[in-house]
Write a protein that binds this DNA or RNA. Sequence first.
DNA 1: CGTGATCTTGAATACAGTCAAAAACTGTGG
DNA 2: CCACAGTTTTTGACTGTATTCAAGATCACG
Lengths: 269, 269
Amino acid sequence: MASSTLTLAPELLLQRLRMVAQLNAQEVELVMSLGQKPRRHAAGSLICPKSDGSPLPRLIVSGWASRPRILADGRCQVLSLQLPGDLIGDRGKRRPLAMTPSVALTPMTTVSAEPLVDRLARDPEPYVNLISALNSVDRIEDSQLLDHIVRLGCQSAPERLAHCLLELRHRLSLIGFTQRDTFPMPLTQETLGDALGLSLVHVNRTLSQLKRNNILRIRSGVVMILDAEKLESIADFSPPDYSSARNLVPLRTSAFSQERRPAAHVAAV
Amino acid sequence: MASSTLTLAPELLLQRLRMVAQLNAQEVELVMSLGQKPRRHAAGSLICPKSDGSPLPRLIVSGWASRPRILADGRCQVLSLQLPGDLIGDRGKRRPLAMTPSVALTPMTTVSAEPLVDRLARDPEPYVNLISALNSVDRIEDSQLLDHIVRLGCQSAPERLAHCLLELRHRLSLIGFTQRDTFPMPLTQETLGDALGLSLVHVNRTLSQLKRNNILRIRSGVVMILDAEKLESIADFSPPDYSSARNLVPLRTSAFSQERRPAAHVAAV
DNA sequence: CGTGATCTTGAATACAGTCAAAAACTGTGG
DNA sequence: CCACAGTTTTTGACTGTATTCAAGATCACG
């Protein structure tokens, strides 16, 4: 049982990589060779402990994590959420996000991604597609950071929640974790609040409102989206476009002479 | 006059690069060779127009820019601010932030950075320090993005303003644009609001409050910080550490069992 | 000097936060 | 299988911060 899941550990990552690039047999083999040294993490524990200051690269096999940033007075902001199939920790590129440690939000399993990272660093030539695929995955992560900024900077509570849930649904769909309009969502409302810059209580009220309006349903950690169209219109959400960078520049010219009006759809919720 | 400023165009970039790495003569020469094809941009105009979808790399010589993101209903979120000495546009790494076009907030001058980018792509070996310096600069930009998230996600209006002003002071000090506690700040309060996720009116009131408390003074686009200590205590600001990644992981363990209390210093403002 | 942009101020409103307590759900051990 | 303790969710009442609308003052610039 356990050994079979371990053999399949890198499956989810492979699935995501294949979405952005064609991989040859050697590349697939390298990815699938991960799965050694699986480690379990209790909820609340720190993953990617920085021994020398740099968190070692790991692949999430199961469970969710976050990268929290704690202010001097205890306030917490979640910078990003991490799902199965995500790579975490330092992969040599040393981007600041990759350098911030992750905290397990649920019980987790991870495997070391060092074999992959080391191999690509030592001998990149045979793995050009793989490297490009990993870069694409990084770019998608970056663009989610930008979405996060927009959410926090200029969206209302219902908009933030809607956008976040749609992002999660999208990410989970890539690894086959959605069934129809249903997906697992093991975050507490407090964590959701920390991610969306809202108080626990306000997250609760806003979710109740979405439920009351038959837009979604949540029970026992599973979200069911009843009215995807309405949720999308609230969120102003567009999933990342994998083939081009078109969606990354949704700018209108003369950006600064635009007047703004409040989001009409919000009132309708 | 004009020609002398053009000759000195890459000076500011060089200054920043030298702060993060030792450059040899050849590298310095390559950087200083920029300055061809200077272009002026009117305030409000789009820089880095994406001819083929990818904004060409340019170096800001003078003036400020921003990367705005416009929502369907006209709301605007500034993703980042760009100052003289900053590189903008696509440098081959194709990170989403680099791909979003920039808008001039003031009249600007830029020069093409293509010679630099092309040379490094074609012939990287002699320029290892330079490449590493450019990467460091990128990383600092990334970590400013994370700071932006924290600001928007869990800071109050006075905190956001204080933090933003200190970040600007710090960035401007790196290019020699500060004098004592004084620095230029050509942003309108509306743009400041778009960056900080606050309404124009609230930015105004919050600034007035900071002025009233003798923490700072603003007149004719110049900020003077009167009480840096108080401003820093409001902002919870720590400038990036150039020698290590230490400051990028300001995490306390057991992040999620912490209770939070409101920022005491805010009330004191 | 006039015109448009920017800043400032006031008043009313709305959105979100805080405090507090109760209800529902968890997982655990008896 | 149930009882219990801790966590998470839900609800209410109140407060506070930030937004909106509106109007007037000031500034920059031609």
